[in-house]
Design a protein around this nucleic acid. Structure first.
Length: 584
RNA sequence: GGGGUCGUAGUUCAGUCGGUUAGAACGCCGGCCUGUCACGCCGGAGGUCGCGGGUUCGAGCCCCGUCGGCCCCGCCA
């Protein structure tokens, strides 16, 4: 007799003598006839314990005693169920196991919440008893899918000549970017390691080392506040290759996605469409466009330039723009609805939200006192507005206008049910600006990271116009990953640091070893990093990253199960030369 | 750091205008039951109303504070 998995039994197994091991999902006791639903990670199967069919006293008594979550071993024969007692709701519903023996391997307390597919237990409780939550099929399935994906990634990368190389977890703090998690050094008191935000520098050094093609399914750490799609530790497929260009990365990643998405029943069409950053911003107002639906942005700046209306005039005079989205059937939005959208726009930084309703013979506008009928007609032509549609217009600094309209577009589309849920639209976003101006600190930041190659070295002379050899892969408006062709010359890298306002001395202190490495024959190279958690979340159609991570953290970065972080012994602190200063 | 929301049996929730002994369903415990799969029937146990303080003759309910879950903003290349 061999052990089978409960959820895999089908009519083809009928007649086989088998062993099942697992947990009792449910006990339905009719006295001398007992049904046990037995669950293991594969699913559920009904077991019948019947005195008339070979169950002795011992077996019946064990079956009676076996309550929810008891661990049991069943021996029996797979039998077809009679037509009238088949259960169409279960994959195993055509058969059942007629038990000859039931042995209780371990007893269980009543769990704090029912182990059911559709649980309504509070997430706090589920996180505290995560090992019970993971017994639920939806979570088990997500983890199984995650395994299949990472397994397929390794297989694919291997077949394409990539070496999986581990890089340090205890590494060096790099002040750019996110807040680091720090680990105190006992040997060097007062000094700290940092957990990697990504293995960026190490993978580049692997290229200098001549390893040619590197990948790693790498854990990354960022000490920033959490969101539904952000955990403090997360996993990336980190990739780097030498003597390659953008096209190599595009086809590599397209090939990878074409293998892994079908694991979740999602077909992938390659090659992916490509969109320059400028086009993405102009059409969608965002560098990770959701291309599953229309309602694209329209530039109304030249139309608005003739209108004597302060919000438009001021925006244009200040070098900003006037842009809009056109909501079909939006003319019927109530006053309240438009007010809500206006409130939302203001919260995102807009001065206000102007609107034009195209209905009846004459369009109606929130600013109609400042505009005549022919001008509104012209707007109708420019936007190609159908009767019944609504233009939502934002004026001001262009970056704000993009941001507000991009968010409005998503919100309205979601509320109006315009987003086809079964579509998976991939797009490469390319030709990013190299730098981003930061108002607060009045300096340029590297948009991607400071190792990204400029489109040309001359670009560095004018940081405001410099373009990057960077690319993002976007799925349904979610950034799955991004990367770039890197700088491989120490002189260019030094110029890059200079453009970022990082002094030579500072650069040497932080990245001196990288600059030095580049002097010893660094090959041209580039790579990409993909967010594994987000990818699995999308493929599993899960709501939260927590649903695809075995032991996730709460919104306040705690592990409720093991109660981390926690205080440590005074001895541990003194070994590290650390005193904790509590702020009152 | 800020905003919103939730917190009452093991679980999910109800709880009126501040008023007697805080209820229901599921689960749990005991009993009966040979075709159930949300089994059914009979009986039973089970409460620090998140925590602390205040107002009041009286607080699950009102006020202040605090802790925790979730969502959002800031933050996160």
């Amino acid at each position: 007799m061999t052990r089978h998995f409960a959820g895999t039994l089908r009519l083809e197994h009928v007649g086989q003598q088998i062993i099942l091991k697992g947990w009792v999902q449910k006990n339905r006791d009719f006295g001398d006839l007992i049904f046990l639903d037995l669950r293991d990670r594969s699913g559920i199967c009904q077991v019948v314990i019947d005195r008339g069919r070979g169950a002795n006293d011992e077996t019946v008594n064990a079956a009676k005693e076996a309550r929810g979550e008891f661990v049991v071993q069943i021996e029996g024969t797979v039998a077809a169920r009679a037509e009238n007692v088949r259960n169409a709701k279960l994959p195993t519903g055509d058969i059942e196991v007629v038990a000859t023996s039931v042995v209780i391997l371990n007893r269980a307390d009543t769990p704090p919440f029912a182990i059911e597919d559709d649980t309504d237990a509070a997430e706090e409780l589920r996180l505290q008893y995560r090992y019970l939550d993971l017994r639920r099929q939806p979570l088990t399935k997500n983890l199984m899918l995650r395994h299949k994906i990472t397994f397929a990634i390794r297989d694919y990368m291997n077949r394409n000549g990539f070496l999986e190389i581990e890089t340090p977890i205890l590494t060096k703090s790099t002040p750019e970017g996110a807040r680091d998690y720090l680990v105190p050094s006992r040997v060097h008191k007062g000094n700290f390691y940092a957990l990697p935000q990504s293995p960026q520098i190490f993978k580049q050094l692997c290229m200098v080392a001549g390893l040619e093609r590197y990948f790693q399914i790498a854990r990354c750490f960022r000490d920033e506040d959490l969101r539904r799609d952000r955990q403090p530790e997360f996993t990336q497929v980190d990739v780097e290759a030498s003597f390659i260009d953008e096209e190599f990365i595009y086809s590599m990643i397209e090939g990878l996605f074409a293998e892994i998405f079908p694991l979740a029943g999602i077909e992938v069409k390659t090659p992916f469409p490509r969109m320059k950053w400028q086009e993405a911003m102009d059409r969608f107002g965002i560098d990770r466009p959701d291309t599953r639906f229309g309602m694209e942005l329209v530039d109304l700046t030249s139309w608005a330039s003739d209108i004597e209306f302060a919000p438009f005039k001021d925006a244009i005079a200040a070098g900003g723009s006037v842009r809009a989205i056109l909501v079909s059937r939006g003319a019927s939005f109530t006053r309240k609805r438009v007010d809500e959208l206006t409130e939302y726009a203001k919260k995102l930084g807009a001065g206000g939200l102007m609107w034009v309703k195209f209905e009846g013979s004459e369009p109606n506008a929130s600013f109609k006192k400042f505009v005549d009928a022919p001008t509104l007609d012209l707007l109708r032509e420019i936007t190609r507005a159908e009767p019944g549609s609504l233009a939502l217009i934002v004026a001001g600094k262009t970056t704000m206008v993009w941001d507000v309209l991009a968010n409005l577009r998503l919100r309205v589309a979601r509320e109006e049910g315009m987003i086809p849920e079964d579509r998976f639209d991939f797009v490469w976003v390319t030709n990013f600006p190299l730098f981003e101006w930061d108002e607060e600190s009045q300096r340029y930041f590297a948009r991607h990271h400071p190792f990204t190659s400029p489109a040309s070295v001359e670009d560095l002379e004018d940081p405001g116009k410099a373009m990057a050899r960077a690319y993002d892969v976007v799925l349904n408006g979610i950034e799955l990953g991004g990367g770039s062709i890197r700088i491989n010359r120490s002189d260019v890298q030094s110029k890059m640091f200079a453009a970022l306002g990082i002094s030579e001395e500072d650069a040497k202190k932080r990245f001196g070893f990288l600059l030095e490495a580049f002097r010893y024959g660094a090959p041209p190279h580039g790579g990409i990093a993909l967010g594994v958690d987000r990818m699995v979340m999308l493929m599993a159609r899960a709501e939260s990253l927590r649903d695809v991570i075995a032991f996730p953290k709460t919104a306040r970065a705690q592990d409720l199960m093991c109660d981390a972080p926690s205080e440590v012994d005074e001895k541990q602190l003194s070994d590290l030369g650390i005193a904790v200063k509590m702020t009152p």
